[in-house]
Simulated assay, not measured.
Amino acid sequence: MIDILREIGMIDRALDSIANIEFKQIDLARGQYLYVVRIYEHPGIISEQLSNLIKVDRTTIARAVKKLEKNGFIERKSDPTNKKIKRLYVTQKGKEIYPFIIRENQFSNREALKGFSEKEAQQVHDYLVRIRKNIDGDWDTVKHGGKRQY
């Protein structure tokens, strides 16, 4: 069987390493750019939704949110109808770095797809979406304490 997940992992780690080095200049620590982008794109999102969106556990979300809030990139606000619910928003500082993060992402996409036709790039995208959807069920099961059947 072809091990595509190894290739996907190497691509992910390489791009994550590059981004982490480049984002030091805007005071973002390892992997934090992803949270800022998703909160910017989904203002008022709650932690559980963010967890599902980026596929990390709630503890990781809580740690990242706390750090980003401390560093002034995001803020938590109480929901107007239920004060127990905390909604996440980017601050002005977060809004100012968003274009830089998106430029880096667009550049990385162009680099990754060099030599691909538009049709091939769309096929890669479609295949990766299918792969992610195949994994979503397992992620949700394990996240809620279940076990996968090997």
Rank of each mutant, 00 (worst) to 15 (best):
D57F: 01
V129D: 04
F100I: 05
E75M: 14
V36S: 15
E7F: 15
Q106R: 14
E48N: 04
I11D: 12
E7K: 12
E69P: 11
L34D: 14
L113G: 04
R148T: 12
N105Q: 05
T141N: 15
N20P: 15
A112Y: 09
R58G: 02
K143Q: 14
Y35S: 00
Q122D: 07
I61W: 00
I4E: 11
L68M: 11
Q123C: 13
R30N: 11
Y98C: 08
L68D: 00
E120D: 13
I8S: 04
Y89G: 06
P43N: 00
I26Y: 09
Q106T: 13
E69H: 13
A14C: 03
D79Y: 06
I11E: 07
A64H: 02
K93H: 13
N134L: 12
E7S: 15
R132N: 10
R130S: 10
F73V: 07
Q25S: 15
Q123V: 15
R63P: 01
E22Q: 05
V56H: 01
S108P: 05
N109S: 08
V124D: 08
D27I: 09
R87G: 11
G146I: 05
G94H: 06
R58K: 05
G115R: 11
H42G: 08
W139T: 00
R87N: 03
R110Y: 08
K55Y: 12
S51G: 07
L15R: 03
E48I: 02
K93I: 05
I85G: 01
R58C: 01
K77L: 10
Q25P: 00
R132W: 05
V65P: 01
D12F: 15
F107R: 13
D138A: 00
G72P: 02
F73L: 01
I101M: 08
I21M: 14
R130C: 01
R130N: 09
Y98D: 07
G137H: 02
I39D: 00
I2L: 13
K93V: 02
D3P: 07
P80A: 15
I85Q: 02
E41Y: 03
R132T: 06
E69Y: 14
F73A: 02
Y35D: 09
V90Y: 09
G115P: 05
S47K: 07
G44S: 00
V142C: 01
